[in-house]
Every structure is written in C-alpha cells, then in structure tokens.
Design a protein around this nucleic acid. Structure first.
Lengths: 259, 259
DNA sequence: ATAAACAGTATATAACATATACAATAAAGA
DNA sequence: TCTTTATTGTATATGTTATATACTGTTTAT
C-alpha cells in the first residue's frame, strides 16, 4: 500500500496524471509531452489513427523515432494519452433543472468530440476510464445525476450506457461516410447499393423477420445524420432516458410509501 | 444495378456469403476457407487477436503464409470472416410471450459469445453488420420484436442498443480480468489497487462529484461478473427494457385514443 | 574536477502484410 | 492424346512497423 502511485498505475496512466519524476542531471529536453500529443493528434485527425506511427510523429517534430521513447514508454501509451488529451472538452458551468436536457447535452458533447476526432472510434477502449480528462467527464455525469435518487453503482451504470451510446453511433456515422467514400455506394443516396445487395441475399426463407425490414429500407444507413445524428440515435437515447425516468418515479413512489 | 453481387460487395463480405466463382482448371485446393477460419479462431481463442498473423495461421495448417491469399484477399477480411464465423450461435426455436425474457435471452446469448471468444471485443466493428451470421442474429431480434408496436427503424435502433450493450460489458469484464492478471491488482479483490490510486488522484477540488462515488467503491470493477455479468450490466439492461416498455405503453394508449 | 544521469541519435532486429515470379497440376479445347 | 490455360502452393523480396541497444554529447550533483 505504500507503493508509489507511478508504480501502481500503468505507465501511460501515470503519465497522463503528470506523475513524472522531474530529473535534475542531463541535457534539457527539446520536446514536451504536449507537443508530441499535439503532433500525433494532428496526424490522426488528418490521416486517421492507422497513419499514426512513432516514426511519423517524431519526424513531424523534426526528431528521430527513438527520441519519442524518452517521453512515452510505448505506442500503446501514446494512443491512450492522445485519447485522454482530446477529451479535454468544455463542461458547462451550470446544470439545468431538467435532467433530461442535461443528459442530452452530455451525450451531444461527447458526440461532438467523436465528430472532431473520428479516429477515437478506432481506439480500443479497455473498460473503465482512469485518465484525468476522462474522469472529468465522468465527474460531469455524476454532477448531472447528483440530485437524482440513484446510488453510486446506478449512476456509474447510466454513465457507461450514455458514453457507449455516443461511441456506437459515432462509429456508425463514420462507417456510413466511409462507405460513401470507398465507392461501394455509387448513387447519390448512401447505402442504396448495400441495400440492393441485401435485398438479394436476405431471403424470406433464411431471414423471414429481417427481410421486411430491409425491404422497408430501414437497414440502410440514414443520411440525416449530420444535423441531429439520425433517427436511430435519438430514438434509442429517448428510450434510455425514459427508462431512467421510469426508474426514478418508481423509486420516489416507493419512498413515499415507506414514509 | 446489373452489377454482380460479388462486385458490389466488399470482397470479404462476398466471401462470407459464399459468393465465390468455383473454378475448373488448376490443382485441387488443399485447404478450405472453413479450415483457415477454424485455425485462426483457435489461435485467437488461445492467444488473443493480436497473436493472429497470416504466418501463424498458415503455419498451423502446415502451409506457407502466401497460400492463405489464395483463399482470403487480406487480413482485414480474415478478421471479418472470423467474426462472422463465431456468431454462428444457437437461436431458440420458440419465442416466449414475455418479450422482456426474450430480449434478455438475446443479450445473454451474445454475451456468451463474447465470453467464449474474448478477442471479439478487439475486432473493430465498422457499423451495421452485413454478414450472414450477424444478420441471423439481427433476424432473431426482429423476430422477438415482430409483434411489438414498433416500426422498422425503431426495431433497428433497439437491436443496436442491445448488441452494443452486450459488447460494452463484455469489454468491461475482460478489462477486469486483464487488470487482475497483469498484476496491477495484487490483492484478492480485483480493482482495489486502482481504487486506492484513484482515491489519491481524484480530489474533491478537481472532481467534487466523482470523489464520493470512488470513496463508495462504486468505481472499482466488480467481482460478481462471472455469474450474472454484474450489477451495472443488469441495471442498465433493465433501464433499457423499461424504456422500451414505457414507449410501447404510450404508443398503445395513443392508438386506443385514436380509434 | 569528476562522475552520474540523462538527451537525442544511429543502428539493428524481428515481426508483419503483401507483391511478384515461379514450378507443379489439373481440366478444357484441339 | 496433346496442348493450352487457369489455378495451386511456394519461394523470394519489399517496405513498414515497434522497439532494444549502444553511443555521443550535455547538464548537474558531488
């Protein structure tokens, strides 16, 4: 228990918290962690996460590949730090009375971050976040739910539900845009080619319940995403909010009965 | 529109549907797609997705690396096909009257698949599935919702919500197990080390709303995952189901008012 | 003044996906 | 039957990747 924090935590996580023993001897550093992350994020924004390599990042700063390893232990850590860095999003000062509005604002903010940095969808999330900016967002979620009759575990559960909702639909949006770009969708409306193909493959015999859905055109990517993130995103979010509201009501009633 | 299906679809997708022009001339094939996928899946099950390489898969079958490319166009396609192959899960013949039970069974089945093949969490899902076994599962979801008063888009939205819920919490479980294995958690209860670290880092000043949650121990990975996937999974799923139920009720009432 | 610790570099290595050229093979057409 | 032709698995080669190691020069502590 008296182990130092930087030894307890994974190296990348420790770095994100600034837990670096600043050394005395030796030459001055010519780079900074922030510089490296900015450079890496720029590359990822422009060319995607796949284009981020230690070599490319270093070269864009005018240094050799190996110089990066004086700042970051591994590429895995670089990605982790990049992810945390871009989640430095603005958090509103005030919380509204209408908690549904607050939650919608919360989810939309995260969506915006995915929109600004599409490569975030390619970062494999290894579960519960423990880096500072990520926890700032978790704190925001806890603030929104502070006055709701929910215990800590329930709040965490809801927070996870909301953030994963944002992630999933951001991935969807990207997939749609990617499909349009790669030319499999040649028509003006995205998804028609896929849908035409699926109409042939999804037969009534093998997929009796899915077929009518495809014929109805509901399985094609929507093109109303840009403005409001599309029907399916909003419908699902509304169901989640309804579910929370229902639970809160039932709990409030229960409390009244007990008192 | 009169383009052939195998030209319209991405190559890997076309392969998954068996859209391969069986050739006449040349030597007989010594492998089969199924063999390759089985070998690759075995490696992934045992050593993780990261350990799957064209070389390793080929060698495990007694062939050279390049031989695989006579069967699969790229590694990306291999992963896609692996993913679809393991989702060949049993689907119940009968659908119960209680749709909530059906949906729970649906989600648990997918969870089981993630449990059997943990590497699935590392496969980057590029949006809406269009491979056969994946669509079989979508068909299952549509069957469950067949008699519910929902339109196609709403059903798709719910299906996405449910499948992503399974995925997210499977990733969580893995993360927990991984944290236990890599020794950052040295105690008998998983997550305590992280929690101890977070207690120091998450101060009241920076994270006023999150801090009490961490002090309450709600931010640590739970160890009750194995049996029922943990509290947070079930709570969130219950909220989703509540949200759907609430919507169905409100819609049914509306219909009655109109008639 | 000397030694220790550190910075950035140069070089090397092993793993990886995949292009290309080739020899062996089986079926189609003559 | 013989030739042509498409196809198989293989051998070899290329370019990219992350990262280990050894080295040179620099700054500070002793």
């Amino acid at each position: 228990m008296d182990k130092k924090l930087e030894e307890t935590l994974p190296r990348g996580v420790a770095l994100s918290w600034g837990l670096v023993k600043s050394t005395q001897r030796g030459p001055k550093r010519e780079m900074s962690l922030k510089q490296i992350l900015d450079a890496a994020i720029t590359i990822a924004d422009q060319e995607g996460l796949f284009a981020v390599s230690m070599n490319k990042v270093a070269k864009s700063l005018g240094f050799t590949t190996m110089a990066l390893y004086r700042y970051i232990p591994s590429k895995e850590d670089l990605i982790l730090l990049m992810q945390d860095a871009v989640f430095d999003i603005p958090i509103p000062e005030e919380i509204l009375v209408d908690w549904r509005k607050n939650i919608r604002e919360f989810v939309f903010s995260i969506m915006q971050c995915y929109q600004d940095h599409p490569w975030l969808c390619d970062v494999s999330t290894s579960g519960i976040p423990i880096t500072p900016n990520n926890l700032r967002i978790v704190d925001w979620a806890m603030r929104i739910m502070a006055n709701l009759p929910l215990d800590s575990n329930e709040k965490i559960s809801i927070m996870v539900m909301l953030t994963s909702h944002a992630r999933i639909y951001s991935a969807f949006q990207q997939n749609m845009e990617h499909a349009v770009q790669t030319g499999h969708n040649t028509g003006p409306v995205p998804g028609v080619d896929y849908n035409a193909a699926l109409e042939q493959l999804v037969t009534s015999e093998r997929f009796p319940y899915l077929r009518p859905v495809i014929l109805a055109g509901a399985y094609a990517p929507q093109d109303d995403f840009k403005d409001d993130y599309g029907f399916e995103f909003n419908f699902a979010l509304a169901r989640i909010l309804d579910g929370i509201e229902h639970y809160i009501h039932s709990k409030t009633k229960q409390d009244q009965n007990l008192s």
